[in-house]
Nucleic acid binder design. Sequence first.
DNA 1: GTCTATAAGCCGATAGAC
DNA 2: GTCTATCGGCTTATAGAC
Lengths: 205, 205
Amino acid sequence: MARPATDTRERIIAAASKLFYSDGIKSVSVDAVAAKAGLTKRTLYYHFKSKDDLVAAYLAARDQPNLALFKRWFAETEGGLPDKVEGIFRNLARSARHPKWKGCGFLRTSAELANMPGHPAIKIGAAHKKKFEDWLRVTFEARGIGNGSLLARQILLLLDGSFAVVLLHRDPSYMETAGEAARSLTQAALPARRVRSMSASRRVR
Amino acid sequence: MARPATDTRERIIAAASKLFYSDGIKSVSVDAVAAKAGLTKRTLYYHFKSKDDLVAAYLAARDQPNLALFKRWFAETEGGLPDKVEGIFRNLARSARHPKWKGCGFLRTSAELANMPGHPAIKIGAAHKKKFEDWLRVTFEARGIGNGSLLARQILLLLDGSFAVVLLHRDPSYMETAGEAARSLTQAALPARRVRSMSASRRVR
DNA sequence: GTCTATAAGCCGATAGAC
DNA sequence: GTCTATCGGCTTATAGAC
């Protein structure tokens, strides 16, 4: 009562977020989350009906902040559309060099829970990626790209591919490679007027 | 003694492979693997010193067959280089429609064991992906592509991205999208002589 | 090389007091 | 809403017989 219930709930989610992202879902016990949050397991089960419920809350809490970060990286990168798209990958490569970086929490959770396709956490992850893809599509269409839907899907594939590959090899330079590919595809999809010289698709050869 | 020890070992790996790929690493107990192989846990521990050892053997057994499959898909697709590259993705999309498909075992294991970067299974997964990338690079260079190393990395990113995205959304059409992107990038990287009309990079607009 | 039996501990979840 | 205490089951791994 000294603290409203929502604060306790958010403290639990914060603790769960650190542990689940760092160590995975199955490796982290409910006891460990409760200890990290500074309360007992019984209290945790007062706020969440099950561990699955807690896992879903962990990903739901990452949804909006994650999207906001991508949008900020896009907005803050100067230049044309290909530059701004590549800017997302450059910023991601920078964050991937942090020692605590362990890939994409949404993708890692879906990989770990692949045998539970209906799990609420997977639905939240799928919705998150759809929101990102949709934001890309709308952004591309607003800039006059004909098939913005296709380009958005291609960029998403490169982004999630770089999450997976960089996690495996621990080599963030793959994100810069993905950024170059994203730049090439974006450049090629731009309306034909005033094509930039020295575009990435030319630089390749 | 009725059966050589290697047969027992291979039967254990076969059982482990089915269970680990289907349900993940942490979700599958050593008991379950032993039961599936039709022997006791004590016998399993006679052939493998630990569960980690068994996980590594599971991925090692998938290495060569998996590479051979990609090479076969490439070889059996008719047409030019962009067609053959896209053929890999088309075949992958077809296999992803099988109900038992659960993404890439190497990537899923590395996602689940992300907090153990030195785990032997992760090293095997990283080596597997490097072999695939290297085969792509050599293939591209043999066909006169200037920066075969860059294109190989880009194709790898699209392939692993499609593994991750299709696993999350359960929508194999993303693999066809990745195949189109791979075709575009391959086409753009080809030596300039005799550019095919109606290439994918043109079809986009 | 394969078996039965068990150690020693951790798991998610719950009972009941306050 | 938070606590102490605990249930029943599952976990990896090992001891020792044959």
